[in-house]
């Protein structure tokens, strides 16, 4: 009995490893047709669902088509044949290569750029405010104020992200477009909503790290005649540095993979935002909007995007874990 239970619990622990590897492998298998067809070029190709002619003579078929890209694609596009036939069949392949020498190109650059830009924007907005909130909670407000406000912040971190998205769509988006012009769905709105969503998460983690600074260390800096700001800058931040940076990266990881807060407000169009107030799209939003209706190579391209997102966030989170939050245990 003891032995059985021990084995069972070890097996359960291994499940974590199994599921994570399975996610990677399964995403890769489903993405394989697209990976083989578009190769690494997928990462830098801005075209999504664009028909191009296979005939070099009619290169100006669509305005988005670039000659050089096209010939690259011709080289890569040939072998959707034998080896992937079963996967494509499983995906319900509907023959993307229509008979009259055109094919549909899928490239991930726009959503990749959209994801990165919206995350960067969110971080630019959230980091100063979250730092302000955590400094306020940890050092400025007295216990009477900091406790209820702290609890409120933690509760706000628990609110489902779809609520942030809805609020963004109906209230914040119009507000931002009123202030800065442009549409009420845009990269800017998406970045800001994302930022607001991660503020509670980031500030409660940062406050917790700041609170690990021993009281006596702070006293000892005050006893040297330091001001509050100097104590924060010279003692608390250096002391809690790892935890603070770690919490920022965790928040960044959250912003990177967030779907619902962004889906309402980014616009969902496959164009580069020329201005910050233009709409665009991010990887999670592409997945959310197109997954149910896709099949064949377009579904495979979506899996390719999912794989990219997974690997990206895996790297970011592992980085945070192994470099900044490791001394926790």
């Amino acid at each position: 009995m003891e032995a059985i239970f021990k084995k069972l619990s070890a097996l359960s622990a291994t499940t974590i490893l199994l599921i994570l590897s399975a996610i990677f492998v399964v995403l890769f298998i489903y993405a394989k047709p697209a990976v083989q067809k578009y190769g690494i070029h997928f990462l830098v190709d801005p075209r999504w669902d664009v028909s191009v002619s296979l005939n070099k003579n009619s290169a100006n078929n669509t305005p988005n088509t670039v000659n050089k890209n096209m010939s690259d694609n011709n080289l890569n596009s040939a072998p959707i044949g034998e080896n992937d036939a079963d996967v494509l069949a499983a995906l319900g392949e509907t023959n993307t290569q229509s008979s009259n020498n055109t094919e549909t190109i899928y490239g991930g650059l726009v959503p990749i750029v959209g994801t990165i830009l919206s995350t960067i924007l969110a971080m630019f907005f959230a980091v100063p405010i979250a730092m302000g909130i955590s400094i306020f909670l940890a050092e400025i407000a007295g216990p009477k104020l900091s406790k209820p406000v702290g609890i409120a912040i933690e509760l706000l971190a628990a609110i489902p992200s779809i609520i942030y998205g809805m609020w963004g769509l109906f209230y914040f988006g119009p507000f931002v477009s009123h202030l800065f012009g442009g549409s009420s769905v845009s990269l800017l709105v998406a970045g800001l909503v994302l930022g607001i969503m991660i503020i509670p998460f980031m500030s409660s983690l940062t406050r917790d790290s700041m609170n690990t600074t021993p009281e006596v260390l702070k006293e000892s800096a005050y006893a040297m005649g330091a001001t509050k700001f100097e104590v924060i800058k010279d003692v608390i931040f250096p002391y809690a540095k790892q935890g603070i940076i770690g919490s920022m990266i965790l928040a960044l990881g959250r912003a990177l993979g967030e779907t619902m807060a962004v889906a309402f407000v980014i616009g969902g169009v496959f164009t580069f935002p020329k201005k910050i107030i233009d709409p665009t799209v991010s990887i999670p939003v592409v997945l959310a909007n197109n997954f149910a209706e896709s099949s064949g190579i377009s579904l495979s391209a979506l899996f390719y995007l999912a794989l990219i997102l997974f690997v990206l966030s895996f790297i970011v989170i592992s980085f945070a874990k192994f470099y900044f939050l490791r001394n926790k245990k």
Partner: peptide, 30 residues
Amino acid sequence: NLRQRVGMIFQKPTPFPMSIYDNISYGLKL
């Protein structure tokens, strides 16, 4: 000003999270 004139040593050593040099020069810089 008072705290610069009346220094304090605590029960537990309280080295600031910085180099030895920066610790000593901290008060002077302040």
